[in-house]
Write a protein that binds this DNA or RNA. Structure first.
Lengths: 373, 373
DNA sequence: TGTCCTGTTGACAACGTTGTCATCCCTTCC
DNA sequence: GGAAGGGATGACAACGTTGTCAACAGGACA
């Protein structure tokens, strides 16, 4: 039998055979088949751990693979196969730090499992997002998607993906299971918001303002719920004037804080639904000549880097975003494996709770003594 | 001519033809060829920017590509071609916003040209970084690398990559050509730092402090040079006590600012080499009870999101990081194509100059009137 | 007029793998 | 003894693209 094309062609080129200067072409499935005396397809079956291969055949092939140092070619697999060897990370988040941390977590999981990672920033409000993602999956041959908020919360999008049989894992700002059996990672914003509110209450505050985030983000009602539960548990009636809707942006935090501070009896503490809002509140307090935290305590959420760099630094809730991303990716890959070969090593849906971080922007209100916890 | 397999096969499956529920397969080179009335190979030539295609043919094909939304399939390319069709983006930057913007720019270029993108955060001080990158290239089949600072400035690393024949483009904080013919994108930090210093001088400041960044980052001496040139051009002698070495971190900005402010005759303005440092200066000014900008003007560099959200917002220099990344990726891919098929559409090395952004943190010093520009 | 370029284009095979379907052989059951 | 069933294997086409080589047109040159 003759050598296959490329190998012999190469040997023709230099005047002498200089194997140490040649980068030998990688062995292919063909070489393995030849060496082990079986067909291409059988080798393929061994590689893919399919069931119907006799043990002695399998071992024969495995020995050949070992001996040749054969590695499957991902490009060829990706081209021909319905299965894929990469996952996508889909996000639309203005918070760069959040995104970077999540990327790192997901990437570490992918490396561990030999998967590729395709990042995909997108516009969560785009009308054809479902189409965009489905074409991303087919075009880049992705095995599945990690959906960060807010994409993870768009019911219509989720339904479309499911209908198209696209595998995904969702990162959700909630502790409630969606009850649809799809893999999720929960982030319990409600509990964390409760802890922040409790912290303010224990400092002696009762007039506590709350600035909502983007109403379409699941995190917003969750954070409000935490605030409202804490207030209720401590027997404090919420002054409706202290609770304002809006969005997650600095400017809107600034605007709303000025509104609160202009009240006849303004709040002594304001809980902004994220650090951007809280930074806006801080700016508004400054521009009103207030001394933070003594005239006004301020708390945020998310632990953006600048929350540490504001003056005073912001009390906030820290999410371990990297861990969350990592876990989500592992959860997804487990799910993929389960689907493809029925392995039952499935990770459970897991929850994370952001952790209260107390910094300089919160203190007891002027002329009051802290309550006991 | 008959339809190709998959399309007609799909139409057989449901009892009725329901195109709106079908996720159409992505268009292939075949579809483009059919639509533009040329052969597969000619389309391939257009995609790969080969020289020998007549202009009207090229345009015809490009119109078809546009109309169909065609994108080359990286797996198929990678399979057939000896070349790789993905590039890597290598960074080690604590500034998340910078990284995200760069990713988006690079990604947009990659999508346009049908390249894949492998992100690769790394540790710039790792001893075996060269080895890490070279194994990244071979394992992930990358055609080349976009090197962000500070990797782009490590001479030893660059030399090793070159010796291994790894193609790369560097993003460099300088306007000087490295003179080695390797592709670069320059960012003229010197000019931008000059503009910031000039702005402070024109406000009436003469006692202007300068806080260095990381000495191993090329940007640091460049920014200092801009500061020092402006001072010289305006005939102001630099007080050596006002210039302090350090690094790009908030804490170090805080520490050094306190040192400057404790001087018998402290500066009336401080130029921090980046926004982190400037934020540290702002915090130090606050903690010293100073009124910014009247008691102390502060300028930063880089236009981090939080520079807009500080109170007062920071005067700084804005880099169009996305554009820089995009251009770097295009430059790299042009270089790759030039190497492989002699296309001569090579982009020149291009330079970007960050733009002065004046905000609330700079004003004339107390009791002085601004000079004329 | 014929020959030789040179620039432009197309036909076809090939890349390494997997999906589909067919084949073969060995049981098991009536 | 024959049919039916199922496990193991192989032949072949297909995935979407690019490399190779050949063909063709038009111009320059002898």
């Amino acid at each position: 039998m003759s050598f296959s094309g490329p190998r012999s062609a190469r040997l023709c080129c230099p005047p002498f055979d200089l194997p140490e200067f040649e980068s030998l072409p990688s062995p292919t499935i063909k070489d393995v088949a030849k060496r082990s005396g079986v067909s291409l397809k059988t080798v393929s079956r061994v590689i893919n751990r399919e069931a119907s291969v006799r043990t002695d055949t399998r071992e024969k092939v495995e020995r050949a693979i070992e001996a040749l140092g054969y590695r499957p070619n991902p490009a060829a697999r990706g081209l021909r196969s319905t299965h894929a060897y990469a996952i996508g990370l889909v996000y639309d988040n203005p918070n760069a730090h959040y995104v970077i941390s999540m990327q790192e977590g997901v990437l570490s999981a992918c490396r561990e499992r030999g998967f590729g990672l395709q990042i995909h920033p997108c516009d969560s409000s785009a009308a054809d997002l479902a189409e965009e993602l489905s074409s991303l999956v087919s075009r880049s041959r992705l095995a599945g998607l990690v959906l960060a908020p807010p994409m993870s919360e768009q019911d219509e999008l989720i339904a479309t993906l499911k209908a198209q049989d696209i595998c995904f894992v969702r990162i959700i700002a909630s502790r409630d299971d969606p009850q649809d059996g799809s893999p999720c990672v929960y982030v319990d914003d409600r509990d964390a918001a409760y802890a922040i509110t409790e912290h303010l209450i224990q400092l002696g505050h009762t007039r506590i303002g709350f600035l909502w985030g983007e109403p379409h983000h699941r995190s917003s009602p969750e954070r409000y719920q935490g605030y409202s539960n804490a207030m209720k548990d401590y027997g404090i009636t919420i002054n409706k004037k202290f609770v304002l809707p809006g969005n997650y942006a600095f400017d809107d935090g600034f605007r709303r804080a000025r509104k609160l501070l202009a009240l006849k009896e303004p709040p002594t503490a304001i809980f902004g639904s994220n650090d951007e809002i809280a930074a806006g509140v801080l700016a508004a307090a400054r521009s009103a000549g207030l001394d933070v935290p003594w005239d006004l305590s301020i708390a945020g959420f998310e632990d953006n880097p600048f929350s540490k760099q504001a003056w005073p630094a912001l009390t906030t809730a820290r999410q371990s975003t990297g861990e969350i991303g990592r876990h989500a990716a592992l959860r997804l890959m487990d799910e993929l494996q389960r689907k493809s070969n029925g392995a039952d090593n499935t990770l459970a849906n897991e929850g994370f709770t952001p952790e209260l971080v107390v910094r300089g922007s919160t203190s007891p209100p002027r002329g009051s003594t802290p309550k006991k916890g």
